[in-house]
Amino acid sequence: MFRSSHKAMRVKTTDQEEEREHVIEAEGLRKTFGDFVAVDDVSFKVRQGECFGILGPNGAGKTSMIRMIYGFSPITGGSLRVFGIDVSRGLRKIKSRVGVCQQENNLDPDLDVLKNLEVYARYFDIPRKEAHNRAEELLEFIGLDHRKKARSTELSGGMMRRLVIARALINSPDLVILDEPTTGLDPQSRHQVWDRLEKLRSQGLSILMTTHYMDEASRLCDRLIIMDHGRILVLGEPIDLIRKYVGQNIIEVAEPSKELRAYIQSEGLEYEDVGPRLIIYSEDGEDLFHEMSNNYCREGCTLRMATLEDVFLKLTGRDLRE
């Protein structure tokens, strides 16, 4: 199965990039819980060696989707293949080659740091000696080699997270799945985690991650999808998505005057009205900004680069999801 899909791709395209094998292929994927549709007809492919992001507000279907990929959740419809293997048939084979970092830090609180890794290695049938060496290596990689004998419950949030990532690497996986890897961490810890993830990416490891942080997605993801209500809204590279959906620059105006609103209307600018603020999307931001700040708003008017967050909010709206 792996071979045939690989060949099919070779025939289809001559693009160098596309020629790489796909680690995940989802086609018309669906997941329902009773009447609730969590994932609705989703199709995407993750290339080997890329970092692929899944973004979306709470309840968009991110976690449901990745739970299907690591086998916690049987698929309701469509097809899902990992390494070319159908998840409903060869799950054990798939799981032996995947490293999973779940949303909760489910480290083993009954074991110390080193034992957490060694015991986890046993689940993959890794021989004791090899497991020990690998565990030592990984502890050094995540900078926890000085806390080997600490109980996992004594670690800080950031250390726990790094240890969970190390644990996900114990079987030298071909694909790592990370569900919100830095949620709840302080800025220092987030950067520590990002550093490690970037290193892994540069070593050619395929990564699938969900996140709520747009800066994280921009920094780490080669490509990403933004989901809402179980469906994919857009798929692409972060830079392209920003260009395509919000342009180069953003001008934000706090408490806009009537005159400014009239000016925007007359110029036919693309903008969004969020209560006391106006968000104006623009390609040639600088001239427009000078024009506006000179004539309409001396203060409370800022020009900034467009970010992925603007794309996200534009596409998924600003309503709270609870």
């Binding site: 916690f72 799981k95 779940q102 909760e104 083993d108 986890y120 644990r167």
Partner: peptide, 14 residues
């Protein structure tokens, strides 16, 4: 509470 089974379910064990 410990989610130990969840962690093991992500490995080849069923």
């Amino acid at each position: 509470y410990q989610k130990t089974f969840d962690a093991i379910m992500a490995t080849p064990l069923s």
